[in-house]
């Protein structure tokens, strides 16, 4: 590997900010429950594509940011995203070479895991379980993944993020 200069930090930051905006964008009531975890999806992509740049630390900060935005318990998303990014960075060489559909399968598992961590924390602080629709976001996230992947890849190539 040559010593390529780090480029495109702004692009990564902007993509995470865009994910934040999508996270708090108002949706009609029926769609609110099914909103995918955009920040998690974007983090998965960057961890997979440029694991030497986006890793656990970025995951932690992004999670804190989301907690601040959503008014959830501070550190709740941060913990989930730290584990998420750790796993993706660990597995990035495998996930990269999978076909898209198989990738989506992995993404489903990862998203379900973050959701599970959230529900544990919510349970610990005594919030009631919201019911089966709680598991919709990972499913929707999985459906979104192939499109997101293609878009993000073209963005990454266009701006030469490495």
């Amino acid at each position: 590997m040559t010593l390529a200069p780090h480029r495109g930090g702004t692009v990564i930051l902007m993509s995470i900010l865009a994910a934040y905006a999508l996270t708090i964008l108002p949706l009609p009531d029926w769609a609110r429950m099914a909103r995918p975890e955009w920040v998690a999806l974007v983090l998965i992509y960057w961890c997979m594509a440029v694991p030497h740049r986006v890793g656990v630390v970025v995951g932690f900060l992004a999670g804190l940011g989301q907690d601040a935005l959503q008014g959830s318990l501070l550190g709740q998303h941060a913990l989930a995203y730290v584990l998420l990014t750790y796993l993706v960075v660990k597995l990035h060489q495998r996930i990269r070479v999978y076909p898209l559909m198989q990738q989506a399968g992995i993404v489903l598992v990862l998203l379900a895991m973050t959701q599970l961590i959230q529900i544990w924390i919510n349970g610990l602080i005594g919030r009631p379980h919201p019911g089966p629709e709680y598991w919709l976001p990972p499913l929707v996230g999985t459906l979104v993944w192939p499109w997101l992947f293609v878009i993000m890849r073209s963005v990454r190539r266009y701006y030469g993020v490495q």
């Binding site: 905006a21 935005l69 008014g71 501070l74 550190g75 941060a78 610990l124």
Partner: peptide, 29 residues
């Protein structure tokens, strides 16, 4: 950190965080 918030120890931190998130909320709104 989680426990910290459960015990409501850090109201000033909470306020700072809420303030930091304001630009994003403002932008979406």
């Amino acid at each position: 950190m989680t426990l910290d918030h459960r015990q409501h120890l850090s109201a000033p931190v909470r306020e700072a965080v809420q303030t930091a998130a304001y630009p994003m909320h403002f932008l979406v709104n």
